[in-house]
Each structure stands twice: as structure tokens, then as C-alpha cells.
């Protein structure tokens, strides 16, 4: 893993701290980009690399914790907070908001390296997950409207006969749809297709088991 393929963003309003952290990260081999304000960071075009965001809690334009909240709706690099006077409630809030670490200034080298590495590792995982999901979405987009109707029924575990009855089509037709779905979604088996559907959060609309259990419950009442 070559650190030159990883990038660390630093947002701190104090030029000396910004510069020094940048220098240290560079000396450790990382690509770095530094910003004086959160808005500058947002405005900048970021290279498509595994990344980490080192964020000062006390920023002039917006509080670091607030900024974390604003970022949370989009995909963003994992955050390592740094602060001049950290208090426990702030650090708890930061970690609950998904921050990797919450470091007090002056930041020791060992802590910094550990935090940045952890953040970048997490970003790699997130990026992989995002890429996988994008691929699955691409496959899903190839399905015809009818096939999209068939998919939830199949992954719900309905028998071909039941699914065909649900849609009012013949069992043969349903089997053709199902094999096309398997092919387009590149699923090796039904179990594989179920896992893919789960990742795509396709709702399980008809559960044979839950349907029967509901009946059981009704009867037992």
C-alpha cells in the first residue's frame, strides 16, 4: 500500500498548525491538502483516492461538530478531530457522529499516524462497499419492469407456482423471467441473488414463512 495513493485533508484556521500538520503528514509519505476553513474544503475538487479528513473543532466559519453533521448526508472521508481544549461531551458527540478519533493538541506523532491509518482503512472499506453497490445498481438497471416485479417475489422465497399465481402468469413464463434475472444480476445461485437483493435493500414483500406463521397466529388466537 503506497501512501502516495492516499490523501489527507487538513482543515484548521491556525496557519502554523495547518502548515506543521501538513509537513508532518508529507514527511510520513501522505499526500496532503490543507484548508483554513470548512467552506474552502467543500469548494475544493478532491482526487478519487482513499482519504482522511483532519478537522479542527474550533473553526471560524462553522463548528467542527456541526460541519460533521452537515457532511453526514454525503459520502465523505472518515474524520479525525483535533482540538485545543477537548471536553468529554464533544468527543462523545464526535465519535457517535462517526469520527475515527478525537485528538488533543498538541497531537503526538504516534496517535496521529494511528488515527490517519485507521481512517484511511475505513475509507477503503467504504469505497469498496460503495463501488460494489454501484455495480449491483448497474445490473439492477438492466432489468425490465416485469423482471423487477418478479425479483422481490423470487427472493422472498415463493415457489415458482406461487409467484406465477401472484402475478397472474404461467409458471413457464415466470421461470424464463427468473433465469433472465439470474443472468443479468450475475447471480450464481438463488442464495447469491438473495444476498445481492439484500445489499440493494430490495424489500421482501411476500414471505411464505411469515405468511403461514401469521395464519398460525390468527388460528391460535
Amino acid at each position: 500500500m503506497n501512501p502516495r495513493d492516499e490523501i489527507v485533508f487538513v482543515v484548521d484556521d491556525d496557519a502554523r498548525v495547518r502548515e506543521a500538520l501538513g509537513e508532518l503528514l508529507e514527511s510520513l509519505g501522505w499526500r496532503t491538502e490543507t484548508f483554513a476553513a470548512a467552506t474552502d474544503y467543500v469548494a475544493c475538487r478532491k482526487p478519487d483516492l482513499p482519504a482522511c479528513l483532519i478537522l479542527d473543532v474550533e473553526l471560524p466559519d462553522v463548528n467542527g461538530l456541526e460541519f460533521q453533521k452537515q457532511l453526514s448526508s454525503d459520502a465523505h472521508p472518515p474524520i479525525v478531530f483535533i482540538t485545543g481544549h477537548g471536553d468529554i461531551p464533544s468527543s462523545v458527540r464526535a465519535i457517535q457522529g462517526g469520527a475515527v478519533d478525537f485528538l488533543a493538541k498538541p497531537v503526538g506523532e504516534v496517535d496521529l499516524i494511528a488515527a490517519v491509518r485507521a481512517a484511511i482503512r475505513r475509507d477503503r472499506e467504504q469505497r469498496t462497499t460503495r463501488a460494489e453497490l454501484a455495480e449491483l445498481m448497474r445490473r439492477l438497471s438492466q432489468l425490465t419492469p416485469r423482471e423487477r416485479e418478479v425479483l422481490p417475489l423470487v427472493v422472498s422465497g415463493l415457489l415458482n407456482k406461487q409467484a406465477a399465481a401472484e402475478l397472474g402468469i404461467s409458471e413457464i413464463t415466470l421461470e424464463i423471467h427468473r433465469s433472465k434475472i439470474m443472468h443479468k444480476m450475475e447471480a450464481a445461485s438463488l442464495a447469491d441473488l438473495v444476498r445481492i437483493a439484500e445489499k440493494l435493500r430490495i424489500p421482501v414483500t411476500h414471505s411464505r414463512r411469515s405468511g403461514s406463521s401469521r395464519e398460525c397466529t390468527t388460528r391460535s388466537l
Partner: peptide, 25 residues
Amino acid sequence: SASIAHEVNQPLAAIVANSHACYRW
């Protein structure tokens, strides 16, 4: 007190990071 601490802490943070960097280079 808080403000003084902050004022002193910022250059200290920079010093610490720079000395690590210096050592690394």
C-alpha cells in the same frame, strides 16, 4: 485563562508536529 491557554497551545501544537516532521525528514 482559557484564552491564554489556547494562545499558547496553538504554537505548541505546531512545534510538536514540526519537530516530528523534522525528525522524519
